[in-house]
Simulated assay, not measured.
Amino acid sequence: MERISNYQLAVTIMLFEIGSTPLFALGSGAKQDSWLAMLFAAATGLLLLFMFLYIQRTAPEECLIGLLKLCFGTKIGTGIGILFALYFAYESMRNLRDFGEITNLTLLSSTPQYVTMLIIVLLATYAVAMGIETFSRVNEALLPLIFVSYGALILLILISGILHRDNLLPILDNGLGPVIKAAFPDILSFPFGQMVLFFMIWHLLSEKQKIKRISIISYLSVAAFLILMNILNLMALGTTLVANSTLPFLQAVQLIQVGDILERLDVMVTLLLFLGLFVKMTAFYWGAVYACTRLSRSTSRRLWIFYVGFIIFITSFIEPNYTYHVWLGLNVSVKFFPVFQVVIPLLMFFVVLFRKHRRSETPSNV
């Protein structure tokens, strides 16, 4: 069985949660309070993470599929496990379509979209075939590049004079209603609820006693970063531009002018977007393949890599255009994702608590 180190787990959590999230306008329905919506969703996501870790601690050597079977029995657990495999594959497909569309919009407008997406699927397939340990080492190599790039862009935004604190005011002008509506389920579902994928990874950590501390510290670091990015977008563009922009961070970076020398840093933003999408897409792809191999031990892993990759690639063309793709993701899919991110884990949590309570009562009844 493959194993990953503590540092590799931390890096993978951070890059997975960051993904392409900082580049999009999350919580724009709350206008100047969108950063509060992010904060509320992150706090709720932290509670979810505590629940996930509690469930994982009951069977440290089991992945999500094994935990589902332990909680609900073999037949029901297998059925729910199949649904999770489909969910992971669907999430991977969405990231692949994002990759293809944004590549076509920003860099390779003359290249057929299916060519770009095929290349990305093949790269992700290779990464999945190499295993989670190799994928984690790739994330280790990417972290410094992503960290330095975001740090440089944030510094340039701060010194370029494009930030306006008035864009954050007045706070809670319309009360908590719009903030809660923006936070739940949309922002909770994307990106914080996606931590459910790590049920497939935690059991591979070599030092399991440190899972909780590493996961929580990594999660809090990413949550703080995402809230900061949301605030920067608001201060730079204002609520109207953020709400109407496809990629507000890209638009904010386009405003940077430092001494008439540093400007037009679009390429750096595009690179960050591509790296984030690739990490998240590959992680979900691996999760879907791993779930399938655990559900069907009679089929080889290599075949599942091919089957899942083929399905991800083919289904990514079902949506007729990018506008529909974004609408479906932000208005429909995020309403159903909490079934996998909240409802089913909550049922598992109650089952674990019930069984623990019964075991604690058994000696007194003897």
Rank of each mutant, 00 (worst) to 15 (best):
Q56G: 01
L68S: 04
L70K: 12
L172A: 12
G131Y: 02
F199L: 04
S160K: 01
G309D: 06
I217F: 14
S189F: 01
A224V: 13
D266Q: 09
L275P: 12
L176H: 08
R137A: 07
W202D: 05
T293E: 14
P178L: 09
Y285F: 10
F198I: 03
L197V: 00
G259E: 10
F337T: 13
S20T: 03
V332E: 06
G287M: 03
N167C: 01
I171W: 07
R294M: 12
H357G: 07
M268L: 14
I146D: 11
G100Q: 02
P60H: 05
V267Y: 15
I312D: 15
F147K: 07
I120L: 11
E62R: 13
L70P: 05
G309I: 02
E61H: 06
A243M: 04
I312F: 10
L168E: 03
K31H: 12
K69F: 02
H325M: 13
I312R: 15
M229F: 04
N365H: 12
L122M: 12
L70H: 12
I214G: 05
V179S: 09
I311N: 15
F88C: 03
N104T: 02
I314S: 15
F99R: 05
V148A: 12
L197N: 03
L241M: 15
K69M: 06
N174K: 15
T293W: 12
Q341N: 09
E101S: 14
N95C: 10
R297P: 14
Y114L: 13
L330D: 15
L145T: 02
Y54I: 12
W202I: 01
P185D: 11
L255N: 06
L68D: 04
A252Q: 09
M117D: 09
V242P: 13
W286M: 05
M130W: 11
A152V: 08
R358E: 13
A42E: 06
W35L: 09
H164M: 02
L169H: 02
S316E: 09
L86V: 06
A182H: 11
G329C: 06
I216A: 03
I154L: 11
R302W: 10
N104R: 04
V308Q: 06
L163T: 02
A25M: 00
V179E: 12
L247F: 10
T78N: 14
F135G: 13
T134C: 03
L68H: 08
I171C: 13
T134V: 07
F198A: 00
N167I: 04
V267Q: 15
F184Q: 10
Y285T: 03
A236Q: 11
G27C: 01
Y90I: 04
F198N: 09
T125I: 07
A243V: 05
K212I: 08
G66F: 05
L228K: 09
T246S: 13
R57E: 11
L53M: 02
L273D: 02
S20E: 05
